[in-house]
Structure formats: C-alpha cells, structure tokens
Amino acid sequence: MSGIVFFATQNHDAVVDFYVETVGADVWLEQPDCTVLKHGNLLVGFCARDRTDDEGIVTILADDRAGVDAYHERVGAAATEDPHVEKTYDIYRFLARDPDGRTVEFQTFLDPEHSV
C-alpha cells in the first residue's frame, strides 16, 4: 500500500519551509495550492486553506537515537520536550510543533528489527 496524507494549512510557505529546511524533506510534487513532500517513505501534502488541520501527529523516523538527538537540535525552540525513552512503545522520541501548531514526533524504534 502507498499513499499521501494531506493537511490543510493556513501557513503554507512557513510549513513547507519547516519540513524542507529544518526536517530535511524534499519537494516531491508542486500543485497549484498544495505541496507534497517526501521524507524517506513518507509522503505528506500541505494545501493552502483558510484553516489548519492539526489533528493527528506527523512522525519522522530516524535511524537511531543519535538521529533523534540531531533532529532535536535542528528544530530548536519548536521542540516541546527533550528526547526520552517511551517504554510503552519501545521508542526513543520527542515532540515538536510545526509553524501551524501541528504535532510532529521524531522517533526511532529501540528494537533493531523495526529500524528504518
């Protein structure tokens, strides 16, 4: 299965810049009012609208804990917590907010079988 998750955004340019410049995503497709980004096997689209979809979480996977720590450093003040182990899910992660206030999770699986 493959697909794209789309979000309405009031801050299209700032949101796209955040994911491209800070997170490291690439522009995969540019449409008249939507930009589809690719990061690894994630395709996510942001469409300019008069409202923001801020339900759910965009999760960015890192190869290891060092990768999560590097993301934490890169997002700076956008981070809402420090990286930590979440034992329930056997992950190392932290949360941040994109320019629209959407929750972004940066994580790695601690079980090597599920690493990216």
Rank of each mutant, 00 (worst) to 15 (best):
D33Y: 12
A66N: 08
D54P: 07
C34P: 15
G67E: 08
G56L: 02
T52K: 05
A62M: 08
R65L: 13
D50T: 11
I57N: 07
D69R: 08
V44S: 01
D63W: 08
D50V: 09
P32R: 02
D63H: 12
D63N: 10
C47T: 13
G56V: 03
F46M: 06
T59G: 09
A48K: 14
A66R: 14
V58M: 09
T52W: 10
E30H: 13
C34E: 05
G45S: 03
D50E: 15
G45I: 01
D54S: 01
E55D: 13
Q31C: 13
A48Q: 14
L37C: 09
V44M: 10
D53Q: 01
K38C: 11
C34M: 07
D50S: 13
R51C: 13
A48C: 01
V58T: 06
L43D: 06
V68N: 04
D33K: 15
L29F: 15
G56E: 01
L43K: 08
L42S: 04
C47V: 11
D33H: 13
I60A: 00
C34V: 03
G40W: 05
D69L: 15
T35L: 04
Q31A: 14
L61D: 04
D33G: 14
C47G: 12
D63I: 02
R65D: 06
F46Q: 01
G67S: 06
T59K: 05
V44G: 00
T52P: 09
C47N: 13
L29Q: 15
T35D: 09
G56T: 02
D53I: 00
R65V: 07
G40M: 02
R65Q: 15
G45F: 03
D63M: 07
T52F: 12
C34H: 08
R51V: 12
N41M: 10
D64N: 14
C47D: 14
D50R: 14
L43E: 03
V36P: 11
G56C: 04
C47E: 14
A48L: 10
E30M: 12
V44P: 02
R51A: 04
L42M: 04
D54L: 05
I57G: 02
L43R: 07
E30F: 10
N41L: 01
K38G: 05
H39K: 13
D33R: 11
P32N: 05
E55R: 03
D54G: 00
L61Y: 09
R49S: 13
E55M: 07
D54M: 00
G40H: 01
G67K: 02
F46K: 04
N41E: 09
D63R: 09
F46A: 03
D33C: 14
E55A: 10
D50I: 08
G40P: 03
G40S: 06
D53H: 02
A62P: 15
C47R: 07
E55V: 02
R49D: 08
N41S: 11
